[in-house]
Simulated scan of single mutants.
Amino acid sequence: MSLLHLPSLADISAAEWDALLPDDQPFLRHAFLLTLEESGSVRAENGWQPDHLLWHENGAVRAALPGYRKRNSWGEYVFDHAWADACQRAGIAYYPKWLGAIPYSPVTGARLLGDRDAISQLLTALPDNLLRHGLSGAHINFTTPDAGDLLAQQPAWLARLGVQYHWHNKGYRDFQDFLDTLMSRKRKQLRKEREQVTHSGFDFTWYRGDALREDQWDFVYTCYANTYAVRGQHPYLTRSFFSLLAERMPQAIRVVIATVQGQPAAMAFYLKDSTTLYGRYWGCLAEFDRLHFETCFYQGMAFAIAEGLQRFDAGAQGEHKLVRGFEPQLTQSWHYLCHEGLRAAVEDFLVQERAGVRAWALEACESLPYRRGD
């Protein structure tokens, strides 16, 4: 039995890796993670050095954790910059750290893959392994309840809560059926927003991943990169990521392109599995009033209804989603810190933070637009 570090998903076959997955969520698949690596979207130079953990028994992989050695905290969506700053002031090395996560994807899903007993053995061996490799700790983001149960049984792991906003398809026949569940004032607001975009002359066309030409992918990437450029930042993903993923996982990709007067003006990039639509990236060439809400929210909701999907996860943060029917959802991450003093300080902080997060999630429900009693 041994814990091994895998420096690339190319070093394990897709069949062997995907056999460990519990469902069809696209972010965990060998093709998705390998595309991030081979497109240059994750690499040591940008702080994401692939370092996947495998638990071997009798020559077979029994468990795995997709992960990365990190020299910064960018692109994680579980914010620990304050912990790193405190360590710097105290003379404690916070980087490099090990992170179990899907890069740039704040999506809850399986992280501890494979046989439950083998996963427990991997977790038991992990603390000594961190010290041998000079890592300050391990962090596992956006975990499922099953993973939380396993991690809670391990010594010194700390749980952290967050909040996202997800939309749930309650068996709606169409978008109007959803609108009928809202309070009158909110229903009028959503209808007015959609009509405003329609009256501006916009049309929307949905594409599967293998239906887009390369010049259309150029447009998708230009829009995506522009959302970072307007903030003076560099995009996380490279142009080749989109074409490679379209070749390898076309069935999981959906793109909606907004056109006005026959010219493309905006896009939203989605992934999907058998139950859920995931809104990932959006961008536009110019600012249009209410276009973001239509392209990223209402189009996705209508698509989920038409496809019979149960849930729409439109991405991290965004309290403005509440008034559009997205409900607060608690997320969980887990943290193991090798430095005992840092661990104690973070544990005290997390006790207070968890209480505040739970209180906010309850308070946020008051902003939901649904008719009371529905």
Rank of each mutant, 00 (worst) to 15 (best):
residue 172 Y to A: 09
residue 155 P to Q: 10
residue 229 A to N: 13
residue 266 A to Q: 00
residue 5 H to G: 05
residue 371 R to H: 06
residue 261 Q to R: 11
residue 4 L to N: 07
residue 217 W to P: 02
residue 353 E to Y: 01
residue 369 P to M: 12
residue 79 F to M: 14
residue 258 A to D: 04
residue 50 P to L: 10
residue 334 W to D: 05
residue 257 I to N: 00
residue 213 R to Q: 07
residue 332 Q to W: 10
residue 315 G to C: 12
residue 206 W to I: 13
residue 262 G to K: 08
residue 201 G to M: 11
residue 182 L to Y: 02
residue 327 E to R: 09
residue 109 G to D: 01
residue 352 Q to G: 09
residue 144 T to I: 11
residue 348 D to K: 15
residue 190 L to C: 11
residue 128 D to W: 04
residue 73 S to P: 02
residue 222 T to D: 04
residue 2 S to C: 09
residue 176 Q to L: 12
residue 22 P to R: 05
residue 373 G to S: 08
residue 239 R to I: 05
residue 6 L to E: 14
residue 222 T to S: 08
residue 365 C to A: 15
residue 135 L to T: 04
residue 110 A to I: 03
residue 53 L to T: 06
residue 250 P to C: 06
residue 274 S to H: 10
residue 123 L to D: 03
residue 209 G to D: 02
residue 223 C to P: 02
residue 301 M to G: 02
residue 172 Y to V: 08
residue 351 V to Q: 13
residue 219 F to L: 13
residue 286 A to Y: 09
residue 338 C to R: 14
residue 271 L to Q: 03
residue 287 E to M: 12
residue 51 D to S: 12
residue 9 L to F: 15
residue 25 Q to N: 10
residue 28 L to G: 06
residue 68 Y to N: 02
residue 201 G to L: 13
residue 153 Q to H: 05
residue 144 T to W: 08
